[in-house]
């Protein structure tokens, strides 16, 4: 019961993070909700399977936020793989997972940022999304399984591309 309450608290605290990660991978609202659901279940499973309480389980390891971000991005990548395997025809609403960049503008700055993020290729999108969440280079490297040098390179390219999309 105590573990359940702790997991509830974590999900409550990190639901916005899960929602933002889902929004950077999927534009379709229904699929986004499904993805957030899958992320929550994966987070629950991950914490439930730890014998000790979550904060003890992470002693000496990544922070809880990094751990949850890792799970969220894994589920999102899994979602992308599944959607590609389903070979759904890309409608105007669905994400184009190829490298096409667009200069589409919108009066709403917030929409511009999310829409522009989705235009980036996955590897740049992941790095930048994590940076925007407030993770440092080391944490991003841990989450993605990359070297800090690779993260720095991708971050630089991603920011250049995002800046040109937002102009």
């Amino acid at each position: 019961m105590k573990a359940d309450v702790q997991i509830n608290t974590l999900l409550n605290e990190y639901a916005p993070l899960l929602a933002r990660v889902a929004a950077t991978y999927e534009i379709n609202q229904a699929l986004q909700d499904e993805l957030i659901q899958e992320m929550s279940l994966a987070v629950w499973r991950a914490f439930e399977s730890n014998d000790s309480s979550p904060d003890v389980a992470f002693r000496g390891d990544a922070s809880i936020k990094t751990y949850i971000a890792r799970i969220a991005h894994n589920k999102a990548v899994d979602h992308v793989i599944k959607e590609q395997n389903r070979k759904e025809v890309a409608s105007s609403e669905s994400i184009d997972y190829t490298q096409a960049l667009s200069t589409h503008k919108s009066p709403d700055d917030n929409l511009d940022l999310m829409a522009a993020l989705r235009k980036l290729t996955l590897k740049y999108r992941q790095v930048l999304a994590l940076q925007l969440e407030g993770f440092n280079q080391s944490e991003i490297a841990q989450t993605l399984g990359l070297s800090e040098g690779a993260v720095a390179k991708r971050s630089s390219r991603a920011r250049q591309q995002l800046a040109s999309l937002m102009e």
Partner: peptide
């Protein structure tokens, strides 16, 4: 801008649904 663009999520409903799935 990224934080402000956070999609609305009903945490209570999400937790309830996750508990159900679990």
């Amino acid at each position: 801008a990224f934080v402000q663009a956070t999609p609305k999520v009903d945490s209570e409903a999400l937790i309830a649904q996750t508990q159900k799935s679990r």
